[in-house]
Amino acid sequence: YTVVLIGDSAVGKSNLLSRFTRDEFSLESKSTIGVEFATRSISTDDGKVLKAQIWDTAGQERYRAITSAYYRGAVGALLVYDISKYETFSNVERWLKELRDHAENHIEVMLVGNKSDLRHLRVVMTEDAEAFAQENGISFIETSALDASNVEEAFSSILTKIYEKVSRKSMNSDAAGSGKTKPMANNASKVIVVDNENDDAAPAKKKKCC
């Protein structure tokens, strides 16, 4: 599975990745140029081993032309913002649009509020982010790459969802006509699954990627 990490510069994407893949965090992190990459395997509840290939992308706007190439093969995206910097949250909408334009329709997206250890500097309220995620039919979590809280959860939750989605898809790939299969509307919630109940309520995407 290929998962991409996207979001503004300096929100902590690279540290989330190094925390998850190597259990490392660096206060002296380097800015990412282009894309970087790491892998890790996790096991699911039913004993399957999922191997994740995670692409970490440069946050700067100008890089989008090249980083967006990596969205294409991705089945999941962690869209990261910094809870202590409001504009990184306001830009989340733009990032979603990026995904809509370049990624597969059925990509699994998770909104990640990073740096949750910076409690005293928080400017993005958890409820606001939650509401935004709900509206857009994506899941949401707050993490801290520094103290490691929820990092494991974020990655394993998105990987598990992808896994479920993929196995479901292969199971009833032919039974596609049912339920909420309406074609992606051309508006805001297009990226993601039309499934506003999101979360564990089976992201039953029978979306066809056209």
């Binding site: 510069s9 300096a10 660096s26 206060l27 002296e28 992190s29 380097k30 800015s31």
Partner: peptide
């Protein structure tokens, strides 16, 4: 400004 401290951080 974001990148200054992230240049040769070591």
């Amino acid at each position: 400004y974001l990148d200054l401290p992230r240049t040769y951080p070591e």
